Simulated scan of single mutants.
Amino acid sequence: MNYYFIIYKPYLVQSQFSQVDGKQTLSDFFDVPKDVYPVGRLDHDSEGLLILTNDKQLNHRLLHPANKHERKYWVQVDGAITVDAVEQLSRGVSITVDGKPYRTSPAHVELFKTEPIVPLRNPPIRFRKEIPAPWISIVLTEGKNRQVRKMTATVGFPTLRLIRYSIETLTIDGMQPGDLISLSKSTLYKKLFHE
Rank of each mutant, 00 (worst) to 15 (best):
Lys23Gly: 15
Asp173Trp: 01
Leu52Pro: 10
Gly79Asn: 12
Thr104Glu: 03
Ala85Pro: 05
Ser186Lys: 15
Asp98Ile: 07
Lys185Trp: 02
Arg164Glu: 10
Ala85Tyr: 00
Arg161Cys: 01
Arg71Leu: 02
Ser18Glu: 14
Ile138Pro: 10
Lys185Tyr: 06
Glu168Val: 09
Ile6Gln: 08
Thr171Pro: 00
Ile167Ser: 09
Gly178Cys: 09
Asn145Ile: 08
Asp98Thr: 02
Gly79His: 05
Ile167Pro: 06
Leu170Thr: 13
Leu26Phe: 11
Asp55Arg: 03
Tyr189Val: 06
Tyr73Phe: 09
Leu183Asp: 01
Leu12Phe: 12
Leu111Thr: 13
Ser15Pro: 13
Pro10Phe: 06
Ile7Lys: 01
Asp45Tyr: 05
Glu47Ser: 14
Gly178Leu: 06
Thr141Glu: 15
Lys113Asn: 03
Arg161Met: 03
Phe29Asp: 08
Lys191Gln: 04
Ser186Trp: 05
Tyr73Val: 06
Thr169Asn: 14
Val13His: 02
Ala153Trp: 07
Pro65Ser: 04
Gly178Val: 03
Phe127Glu: 07
Arg61Pro: 00
Asp173Met: 01
Ile95Asp: 06
Asp21Glu: 09
Lys100Cys: 06
Ile163Ser: 04
Leu26Pro: 04
Lys23Asn: 15
Leu89Ser: 01
Tyr37Trp: 13
Met1Lys: 14
Met151Ser: 02
Ser137Ala: 15
Leu50Lys: 04
Pro132Tyr: 03
His64Ser: 08
Val155Lys: 11
Asp84Phe: 00
Lys34Phe: 11
Leu62Ile: 14
Thr154Asn: 15
Arg126Asn: 01
Thr82Tyr: 10
Met175Ser: 09
Gly40Ala: 11
Val39Ser: 05
Val20Ala: 05
Leu170Asp: 00
Pro101Ser: 03
Pro119Ala: 11
Leu52Trp: 10
Ile125Val: 11
Val32Arg: 13
Glu70Gln: 08
Asp78Phe: 15
Gly174Met: 11
Gln57Phe: 11
Lys144Pro: 04
Asp43Leu: 02
Lys9Leu: 12
Pro33Leu: 05
Ser94Asp: 12
Ser46Lys: 00
Phe193Cys: 11
Ile6Asn: 13
Asn67Lys: 03
Arg146Glu: 07
Val83Lys: 09
Leu58His: 09
Trp74Asp: 12
Pro10Asp: 03
Phe112Trp: 05
Asp35Val: 09
Gly99Pro: 09
Lys185Ala: 12
Leu62Asp: 11
Ile95Leu: 08
Lys56Glu: 13
Gln16Val: 15
Tyr102Glu: 15
Leu160Trp: 06
Thr82Trp: 03
Trp135His: 09
Trp135Gly: 10
Leu26Val: 11
Ile7Phe: 07
Ala80Tyr: 13
Phe5His: 09
Pro134Val: 03
Asn67Arg: 02
Ile7Ala: 12
Gln24Asp: 14
Lys185Ser: 03
Thr159Pro: 12
Leu188Pro: 01
Leu140Tyr: 08
Gln57Ile: 14
Ser18Cys: 12
His108Thr: 00
Ile7Thr: 10
Ser182Ile: 03
Pro65Phe: 02
Pro38His: 09
Thr141Pro: 00
Ser27Ala: 14
Val20Tyr: 08
Gly79Ser: 06
Pro65Gln: 04
Gly178Thr: 07
Phe193Trp: 06
Asp179Met: 02
Ile95Arg: 08
